[in-house]
Amino acid sequence: MRPFTYERAASVEAAVKSAAQTPNAKFIAGGTNLLDLMKLEIETPAHLIDVGRLPIAGIEDTADGGLRIGAMATNSHVAADVRVRSRYPVLTQAIVAGGSGQLRNKATTGGNLLQRTRCAYFYDTSKPCNKRQPGSGCGALEGLNRNSAIFGASHACIATHPSDMAVALTALDATVETLSPSGQARSFSILELHRLPGETPDVETHLIPGELITAIVLPPPPAGGQVYRKVRDRASYAAGLASVAVAGGNLALGSVAHKPWRAEKAEAALALGSSPVEAIAAELAEATHSSRNGFKIDLLRRLVPVAVAQANGGEA
């Protein structure tokens, strides 16, 4: 770990101000991802701004019947919230499908969205990785890439975004609220938060440097059933091989792209009356794969129709 300085932000405004003024500063919330990366010197911030105790940890009803989830609300807190459980069960299911109880107790809503990939070559600093060290190459491309992307990958990076929660939020059409370094509040669709890798996989979001996520806003739940299904190597505490969030007619896929993947083609096909089998086939027509992750295509072809049926009251 590299030496760094630390401050605990007194307010949301102070946090953003400090981030704007201090070179190479990073926010730290639960720390469950950032600290691991710092120990391995994958992240080497010179200054940490602790936002973990900022008073933006509540969950409140919005005027239109949705929910505003503070960025510091812990994953456990959100998953257990009665309103979330009853109106957004896909979100609870997705959160509890991730990590372990201890991690979810620390992990925050904002931090979860911005967690970095679990690509093994990203974690091994002896290997080339364009995301960790731009221009060094991509170790996974010709390597052991069983868990890499099948949508939107580039020759520079085939990593996936590992968050489960974000997949559910994507299916739920969530909005992200931020405070930018200039002090201006912004809000935009979660679909616009993460980027595809392109030539610059080190740039993972459309956030302005130093911009703080302050809340996630959920619109009223869409009509129809919801479910989150995650396929993994072991029953708990494992990254997904692929996952799907169903919320009414909305579909999002996880562990398949550099961002939570909204399956718009499949949704469109469903809306036009296609069967779930045909709908996911339409989405997968665009999928590409590397040497070892082709199974994800078969997996989704089989999983998504089952999940849609389950959301609509089929067998669990």
Binding site: R118, A120, D124, G139, D233, R234, S236
Partner: peptide, 24 residues
């Protein structure tokens, strides 16, 4: 698994090397 290009193992922590957990 061994990445033959580097002669190194791919899983280097307990998030990657999966031993059974309680739920298994």
């Amino acid at each position: 698994s061994v990445d033959p290009r580097y002669g190194s193992l791919i899983n280097q922590d307990l998030a990657g090397y999966l031993v059974p957990v309680q739920a298994d």
